[in-house]
């Protein structure tokens, strides 16, 4: 195992995000606090529009918070975190290998070094034969593997994933969940992932954050008890079903409201 744990945690305190829709202020996020332990895998679930993606984007530096403080692990990285987007996040004009090595290139790594790391990640996501292919020649699942490899390849201790598997079909999605668990268990990076899928959240994470509807606040912080390394077998346990219905009950009402107000 070549896990490099970073010592400092990610701490967000009382983060709020307010934007204006016409004259009216919209509270996307209200006094949201969260601490991510180094090397932990955390999933955020919540109804549509609860600001979970907004929070992720604030951490990743893609959006500005209105108020609140965010402390990121300071370890000399060029970027605050490596981001994985839901879809269309890989550059269509770069080959698979160039996409994976993009973050390294931006941080100024020499070609030989970054190619070596990118090649390593290429084979870890089983795309060796596609090094020189362009994203449009790949399937949706393969493209997301590129996006995930690009994030891991940066070496950033923090990975932010915004519904990385959300656009995939159900079967591809399950295969990708397995791969993601395996990759993460080898690397033990700090991961914060937004998802709609309760099962996915339980299978992947150490901790599930349930958010309330707009304005997004923390509703419940649930520790997932399953041992690692994990397989899909945990889905057949009574604890799994219990956890799933507990989360669903927390979400159900807000999801209903969000749906009706949509």
């Amino acid at each position: 195992m070549n896990a490099r744990k970073s010592s400092s945690a990610v701490v967000a305190e009382d983060v709020s995000k307010v934007f204006f829709s016409g004259q009216d202020p919209v509270w996307a996020l209200e006094d949201f606090s969260l601490t991510l332990e180094p090397g932990s895998f955390t999933c955020i679930v919540g109804p549509s529009g609860c600001g979970k993606s907004t929070f992720l984007r604030i951490l990743g530096g893609l959006e500005e918070r209105t108020v609140g403080t965010v402390t990121m692990p300071d370890d000399g990285q060029q970027i605050p975190a490596a981001f994985v987007f839901q879809e269309h996040g890989v550059f269509p004009w770069m080959t698979v290998l160039d996409n994976i090595g993009f973050g390294l290139r931006m941080s100024g790594l020499k070609k030989a070094e970054r190619t070596e790391i990118a090649r390593d990640w290429l084979s870890r996501v089983r795309l060796d034969d596609f090094a020189d292919a362009y994203p449009h020649q790949l399937s949706g699942g393969m493209r997301q593997r590129v996006a995930i490899a690009r994030a891991f390849a940066t070496g950033s201790p923090l990975l932010l994933m915004d519904e990385p598997l959300g656009a995939l079909d159900a079967q591809t999605r399950m295969l990708m969940q397995e791969e993601l668990i395996a990759l993460w268990e080898q690397e033990r990076k700090t991961v914060l992932m937004v998802t709609h899928d309760i099962d996915e959240a339980i299978i992947l994470s150490d901790r599930v954050i349930v958010m309330s509807g707009r304005p997004g606040t923390l509703r419940e912080d649930i520790t997932v008890p399953f041992e690692r390394p994990r397989t899909f077998d945990i889905e057949r346990t009574p604890e799994f079903s219990e956890l799933r219905s507990r989360i669903w009950n927390l979400l159900r009402e807000d999801a209903l409201t969000a749906e009706e107000n949509a």
């Binding site: 060029q78 975190a81 981001f83 987007f85 996040g89 931006m106 690009r150 940066t154």
Partner: peptide, 27 residues
Amino acid sequence: IDRKLLEAGAAYGAKGFDRFRFVVLPG
């Protein structure tokens, strides 16, 4: 250019001329 790609560029640290060369121009 897809906003996601501009954001991906920013998220991976492409600034200034790099952003221009690797994201804006090819896009």
